[in-house]
Design a binder for these strands. Sequence first.
DNA 1: CACCACAGTGAGGAAATTATGAACATTGCT
DNA 2: AGCAATGTTCATAATTTCCTCACTGTGGTG
Lengths: 223, 223
Amino acid sequence: MYKILVVDDEDNIREVLKEYAEFEGHEVDEACDGMQAIEMAKNKDYDIIIMDVMMPRLDGYSACKEIRKVKQTPMLMLSARGEEYDKLFGFELGIDDYVVKPFSPKEVMARINAIVKRNTASASVSSEVEKFEGLEINFTSRDVFIDGEKANLTPKEYDLLFYLVRNKNIALTRNKLLEEVWGYDFFGDDRTIDTHIKMLRNNLGPYRKYIVTLRGLGYKFEA
Amino acid sequence: MYKILVVDDEDNIREVLKEYAEFEGHEVDEACDGMQAIEMAKNKDYDIIIMDVMMPRLDGYSACKEIRKVKQTPMLMLSARGEEYDKLFGFELGIDDYVVKPFSPKEVMARINAIVKRNTASASVSSEVEKFEGLEINFTSRDVFIDGEKANLTPKEYDLLFYLVRNKNIALTRNKLLEEVWGYDFFGDDRTIDTHIKMLRNNLGPYRKYIVTLRGLGYKFEA
DNA sequence: CACCACAGTGAGGAAATTATGAACATTGCT
DNA sequence: AGCAATGTTCATAATTTCCTCACTGTGGTG
């Protein structure tokens, strides 16, 4: 039996996880924002904290950082695609694992078991850097340099570029991009992608050439 | 492409899911109550079963339990808000996920993808490449190289070539090609195929020889 | 060897798709 | 609230691709 703290602002998500966890014999506490989570985590020793990234009052990252100042409780983050998920790899946060919404409660429980059992901080992603001529992309620090100069990309542009580069030389359909970069719950216009591709290209200067249009399909980062 | 079984007593729900899933290229069977679902699940291997909780004759829980006796097919349950969640998780049913009505078909599809991907754990992600002498076809990056040089094909040409190669050494009738490459709803001129074959051949240079005309029938990629 | 059904070709207009600019909406911050 | 930055939508322009069609080429058959 584990003591689990579930932190999410959506009632039904907390509800589902709680039901499932309790069914498996665990003890579950709930919090609905970061502030509350910090408070509770400080006052009780949990075996694991499951926390949503996006919450009102105080987001998951900040709460995580704050809690880490005093406790080494393992953490599993929940994030919707479309959130800047590269941040999740930031090992300074010491996140043990993360699950992307929509998830199945079954999967979350499986991961909880894995984490608690090994009870060791998981190996974090090492500082990843990709270079294409004068285009340098640092996944860890979330920086992009163009001929040595730091590019000033907006969050979406970062996300889009990162996804493209992580899947370089793979043909990506518009649907795939929408689902992975914007999130499964995005019901927007297809032209939105084009617009962001356009801005990204403008920002990449001479290296815009790496982003190729696949007519009738989508885009590809070709290196 | 997944094989999906949709079980719900409401016609329009089945209809919506079916349309959406088929649009995404999946194969969908329908059942309108638990009994029927069990029957069908036993006789065919589905990638996932989507089942309503409340149905006449035999409800979703019972059907799920019954199916689980013989198959480990992943299941996604549909439930109306207000039905007791605990039931969903209370009986070692091994449900993978559930969605509360009213749902968006897009979300359901996203979850289906998540579940099936997870369950086909050992899915190989090898970069698919086919080589015929100096003709190299990369299905992943959607590239075609001719003696090391990248060919510049239009979308239709890619589609046509990919389909021919995926079915190499199989005689393909014009009808079959029209249906598979152009889509069942295409009502065009027969010369359309010829024209695209022509373009494709021109683009393949010396390797045009692989595309063989079967007089009176259609074409074949002969390797 | 002439016929005929079928396949190959070229070109231009039609159709589909993407790029772009600007308006509009949203978010975050002071 | 007001502003600045970012994200989204939409209309329009710019491209690219597709399809049709009339015509030409070809192989097999009687």
